[in-house]
Amino acid sequence: MSQPTKQNESIRRYAASDQSAIVVEGLVKHFGGVKALDGVDLDVKTGSVLGLLGPNGAGKTTAVRVLTTLLKPDSGSVKVAGLDVVDDAAALREQIGLAGQYAAVDENLTGRENLTMVGRLYGMKRREAQARADELLDRFELDEAANRPANTYSGGMRRRLDLADALVAKPAILFLDEPTTGLDPRSRLALWGTIEELVAEGTTVLLTTQYLDEADRLADRIAVIDHGKVVADGTSDELKDRVGGERLEVKLDDDGFNQRAIEILGSMSDEDPFVEGESVKLTVRERRGAIVEAVQKLNEAGIGIDDIGLRRPTLDEVFLSLTGHALETEDDETQEDGK
């Protein structure tokens, strides 16, 4: 069941259909008396990237562990690649790859030995597993370090090896649990590039992150999770729209006209425009035509414009307004949900 060709077929099969790669309905998971997941629904279309965004302890890791058959759900239905996480767990594991928070590689084995071991545990012959290991070492630019024990690797190299481990069987669906937490900015950018390549090849990705820029860049859709519940779900743009309209910012040639501009532009917004810094700012009711309308109004009044623009709310503002608290971004998420 584990020949790469078979895996390619499965990628094609899911890519060709409109079927969702991941469907989660009403997922609940308790740890003792603590409700880690409280009725989570998710739907990830084949070939797309879902970003599961939330602060420490929100339930992201628990969700990934249930979806990858490491934990059994208490209730709800979870299907990955059309397979049930409880009833079809064994078959499901052939369709997925998992790269976790810890960079789970054997530190006393070399990069090549790590990858070969994983290949053989997928059921490949030794020769086949070695060939696949060499392919991946090459792709992840680990070929020079291939015969060094992984405990000599840098943090970024370990993550790459961990991700390579997850890709040994060319899985149709990839789970990445905080793939870049703790990485320096350069390694993070490089890893993002790699993930984008995988997506371009048709892999479905579910990634958890507490970084807004990561979700913004990689994810087609974002599910915001807080206290075990999905509090919002949509594209980055849709989420930003939910927070409120776009903000028009106008900088005048002469800020002596600011008060006059506030009177003139007030009809475009439900709230009163205000001055912040050097600009007059207002949340517009309608994005389309807002700049043209503002320019016309100010022109008619003979007020010169130095700069004008529309600005989207940031995901930070989205998160704050959805959950009532800011997204923490410390790198201390080690044992989010216990074992």
């Binding site: 490491l70 064994a90 790859g97 998992l98």
Partner: peptide, 14 residues
């Protein structure tokens, strides 16, 4: 167990 290798093994069809 503590380094997550058991998780890796458990996610494989082994």
């Amino acid at each position: 167990l503590s380094k997550g290798l058991i998780d890796r093994f458990r996610s494989l069809p082994m």
